[in-house]
Design a protein around this nucleic acid. Structure first.
Lengths: 198, 198
DNA sequence: TCTGAGGGAGAACGTTCGGTCTCCTTCGAT
DNA sequence: ATCGAAGGAGACCGAACGTTCTCCCTCAGA
């Protein structure tokens, strides 16, 4: 999918371009930033952009693809090979909470993107759907391994909590959001016996 | 706030304008639709738009204000004066679920809007925050009346489920989303004893 | 040594953007 | 009867949009 340099790997200008696009798209949205902003901050010329990408849309898709890969790495990194399955779920939840608490958090890149691309047939919209499908399946499998039944309902519940936490994380107090989220995940794991903590 | 006709109420052109803007903004986003589209579909002229609104931004604010009023009406309408407090919560949840299931549902107008206006100082962003604050307080009060303690934590939990449901409602199967949401609300009300239904 | 891709610099393309303007008509209230 | 707001029709503005183009330089691989 990524058409880098003919001879070998990424190309420095392309890396700078994609990195800058990622930072700006995530922080400010997609439709509201023009290619001029991106090429300026990436310190490349207009021609360089269009040598590596067919247009802005492909840049957006590359941005989401990078975010997708980052999240996959984050999740596989959070799982411990010899831990209890429930602890893998907790680790994933903790990783999500850490992201929400981190400075510069601006919500879920995919939920933000899909808000700007409502058309279900649009490539960007489809990329979001594909990512979410993978995430749901991954979480469901993790919960099933942890013995939570029915696993698919639990997976949907987990994703719903996550979506709500990601959406509210940059609109409310992130600490309270994370507390609520982790609490919800815990009661999902223990079957609702975690209503003790404030 | 609404500067309608000098002599009396709304003015028909203004109503058409706001209705069209509401429909298009909700269905397609804000930045990606221009004023030309709106004045064309509202069948008014350019001058008429700028006679009733100072610019596009004020039109966006009016759109969100209308959505806010609609939701307030929906919630006060869902509450029954002589019902048990928990049933008021259930009624609100059911109203939300009905919205998600309805055709043309495209997520939460406020979450969608704030994804396009990340700047916390922007009037549109602030309008979203104000709406969400009202909603959180309203739900928290309802839950407190129902005897759910601590009410503020329960309110945040409810809002988190709602946000997740609204976000996923137009990306997954709405039926499953609603089922998951209502199930989550029920277990919030009964203290986690609602893990029986599939 | 040559060749061709990568990249810089920048002009230019046509389109759309949000917004302002003038001119004319309708119509209700004073 | 008249005055002024509401509205239609449409020209117009400068700016930004995404995109394509030419020209030149550099540098690594064949």
């Amino acid at each position: 999918m990524s058409r880098g340099t003919r001879s070998g790997r990424p190309s420095e200008a392309r890396t700078r371009l994609l990195g800058t696009a990622t930072r700006i798209f995530y922080a400010e949205g997609i439709h509201s930033v023009g290619v001029d902003r991106i090429i300026e901050e990436a310190q490349v010329t207009r021609a360089t952009l269009y040598r590596h990408f067919t247009g802005k849309e492909e840049l957006v898709l590359a941005y989401l693809d990078q975010a997708d890969q980052g999240m996959r790495a984050q999740i596989t990194g959070a799982r411990a090979p010899d831990a209890a399955p429930e602890d893998d779920v907790r680790a994933v939840a903790r990783a999500i909470a850490d992201g929400i608490r981190s400075p510069g958090f601006r919500g879920c890149a995919f939920l933000n993107a899909v808000a700007e691309y409502p058309d279900p047939d649009h490539p960007v919209h489809r990329a979001v759907l594909a990512h979410r499908q993978w995430f749901l399946e991954t979480v469901t499998e993790l919960l099933g391994r942890a013995g939570i039944e029915p696993a698919d309902a639990a997976g949907r519940h987990f994703v719903m909590l996550r979506d709500g936490a990601m959406a509210a994380g940059c609109l409310f107090d992130p600490e309270l959001v994370c507390e609520t989220f982790l609490h919800g995940v815990e009661s999902l794991l223990t079957g609702g016996a975690a209503a003790s903590r404030a």
